[in-house]
Simulated scan of single mutants.
Amino acid sequence: MSDSASPAPASPAPASPAVKVKPPAPEDEPFATFVPELLLPALAKEIQSYGGPAAELSFEQGPMPVVGSDCWMLKGSLPGERRFWLCFTSDNINSAKTVAIAESGSEPSLLESFLIDEKKMSLALLVSRLVQRLNGQKWLGPN
């Protein structure tokens, strides 16, 4: 008896593995998008996680507190007329940054270097260190 079964069809060549396209990191967004659309909401959420009232946050270009040179800045205010500024010397999150703070009824009198030893900025790093600085002032939550 002859085997009349036809040979099995050739199996297709294995498909090459799909190249996974990694979405761009938040930090790859243009500065003018990154700060207002990503940094401000993330910072607001983190500040509120301490249980205190929401911060009023804005993003603008103007004179840097204390020295008056032009910069991009994230401006914030908390209840009790407490104010803070995160200043960028250029429109790049990796540019030199400073922080200024002012208690109620006073103007900022000191600029502090901010994240000067970091090689690459990230959204998480900017948020966590700024919140850490504000919490160090005992401005957040039930301090």
Score class of each variant (00 low, 15 high):
residue 4 S to A: 10
residue 7 P to N: 10
residue 12 P to Y: 14
residue 12 P to A: 14
residue 13 A to C: 02
residue 13 A to I: 00
residue 17 P to W: 04
residue 19 V to C: 05
residue 24 P to R: 10
residue 28 D to G: 04
residue 33 T to W: 03
residue 34 F to E: 08
residue 37 E to N: 14
residue 38 L to W: 15
residue 39 L to H: 10
residue 41 P to E: 00
residue 42 A to G: 09
residue 44 A to S: 15
residue 47 I to N: 12
residue 48 Q to N: 09
residue 51 G to H: 10
residue 51 G to Q: 12
residue 54 A to W: 01
residue 58 S to L: 01
residue 60 E to V: 05
residue 61 Q to K: 14
residue 61 Q to W: 03
residue 62 G to L: 04
residue 64 M to H: 08
residue 64 M to R: 15
residue 66 V to D: 09
residue 70 D to Q: 14
residue 71 C to T: 15
residue 73 M to C: 02
residue 74 L to V: 15
residue 79 P to G: 04
residue 84 F to P: 09
residue 86 L to S: 01
residue 87 C to S: 08
residue 90 S to W: 02
residue 91 D to G: 13
residue 93 I to H: 07
residue 96 A to Y: 03
residue 97 K to A: 07
residue 103 E to C: 01
residue 104 S to L: 05
residue 107 E to N: 14
residue 110 L to D: 06
residue 110 L to S: 03
residue 111 L to R: 11
residue 111 L to D: 07
residue 113 S to E: 12
residue 115 L to A: 05
residue 117 D to Y: 12
residue 118 E to L: 10
residue 127 V to M: 00
residue 133 R to C: 11
residue 134 L to E: 01
residue 134 L to S: 04
residue 135 N to H: 15
residue 137 Q to L: 03
residue 140 L to E: 00
residue 140 L to D: 12
residue 141 G to V: 10
residue 141 G to P: 07
residue 142 P to T: 14
